[in-house]
Design a protein around this nucleic acid. Structure first.
Lengths: 237, 237
DNA sequence: CACCATTTGTTGAACATTCATTCAATATGG
DNA sequence: CCATATTGAATGAATGTTCAACAAATGGTG
């Protein structure tokens, strides 16, 4: 099931395309552009629409308008609305996946630093912003009733979860903790998703910084020997 | 903003109505029923439809069919589709709210037991089942783009959050912990919501029991003096 | 109790609107 | 000039809403 999903372009290639899709409003209007650039442009417009109007109010017309193109264009590049939405979800999934893999790779060999890097990656601006979070949530709302979405709708997939469990297990050994790795990993990743949900609801009292702070507080509580209390503001009122 | 929301029937009165709405298929068909019973019947059918087909595919016809009534009936009892959905959301909000308040009241005076009671209440069968979770998530997906939903769409409201913060503060004093109550409370409630999300996605590897176990593991990690490690399976492989 | 009037609930067809999709015509680049 | 991309109007299906007709309860009256 995952083999069709895990195929993804390199981050470099995607960024180059994205750049082309975004820059030069003057150039894209009316002018031809490569197939991939146009598709990315439409996908970005879809994310915009999902964020602004929600899933149920996202229309082909709105996507086309948002991209500054004509009505019929979406059915030309994507066969149908459903396929456009699937491509959009796949795009976000790939982006998220690439992002945490990069963060993990840059974190070095220390498990504690790796785990913290994964957590921090979740709240990076490029991934964690109102627009993208709203789009994610739009898909979540439809995922249960649409089998096609189910595999992709949880950004944090089975591989991600396995890595979390492994990290928790490693830290448990080196820190002599009492928890069950699998159980703690579930609590941790659920909290990350829950914080996303809070950020998306956007009640203004929760910001990206606050959320990250909460996540780190969780790490300090669960792995006190690896993440000693300090920056958290201590006991000062 | 909250004064219109907090008005809610007593749990007793609501349960009685629900009972009437559910029982005796023979009686409700074609026969007249009190206004309130019929409205509850339609709300239940709406939740069914949301859970089965998702927000965007929930139609008035499907709701009417689900309730075994005719097409035009919904516009008679609720003025429009939008008002039906708002009433449905309000119903779920009231139900959730009543539920945790009851759980809190039954928990006695010990803060540690109160907190655990609130956590456990989240995973009670009556609140936490596929049908209801799916309906919640359907609304989450639309909440950001619909101001009317925003106040109601987060089951755990400001009052709930304040209580969480207070409990965390109290436990901090009695246990001499290092965390910041506000930050820890956010982590905790976010994790609860995240676990709901996981349960709703329903990948079968997460059950109500597993989720509750994770939540309790969190409590043991954050408040070790109040929730000592024991039932968690210890270090046995 | 019988009768009728009124209110209230219910039905299902008709209507209007929105929207995804199609496609013939047109424009563009190679 | 050919292949490809793009346009925008036409089409048809889905769906929320309206409403006239009908049915059931209610209540008053003799």
């Amino acid at each position: 099931m995952l083999e069709t999903i895990t195929r993804m372009k390199t981050a470099d290639a995607r960024d180059r395309l994205l750049e082309s899709a975004r820059k030069s409003e003057s150039e894209k209007r009316g002018r031809k552009a490569s197939k991939e650039v146009r598709q990315l442009q439409l996908i970005e417009a879809t994310i915009d629409s999902l964020a602004k109007r929600g899933y149920s109010e996202t229309t082909m017309a709105d996507v086309a308008d948002g991209a500054g193109l004509s009505r019929g264009i979406v059915n030309f590049h994507f066969e149908s609305k459903e396929k456009l939405l699937i491509a959009t979800l796949q795009h976000m999934y790939d982006e998220y996946s690439t992002h945490w893999r990069n963060a993990l790779q840059k974190a070095g060999d220390d498990p504690a630093q790796q785990l913290q890097a994964l957590v921090a990656a979740d709240f990076d601006r490029s991934i964690c912003n109102k627009r993208k979070l709203a789009a994610w949530c739009a898909f979540w709302g439809e995922a249960k009733s649409r089998p096609t979405y189910q595999a992709l709708s949880s950004a944090r997939d089975a591989v991600y979860q396995t890595i979390f469990i492994d990290l928790c297990a490693t830290l448990k050994q080196s820190g002599d903790y009492a928890y069950e790795p699998q159980v703690m990993a579930l609590a941790l990743s659920a909290m990350l998703e829950g914080l996303w949900l809070r950020l998306m609801m956007g009640t203004e009292d929760t910001t990206r910084e606050t959320a990250l702070q909460s996540a780190n507080e969780f790490l300090s509580a669960a792995f006190p020997k690896h993440y000693p209390w300090k920056a958290a503001g201590a006991t000062k009122p």
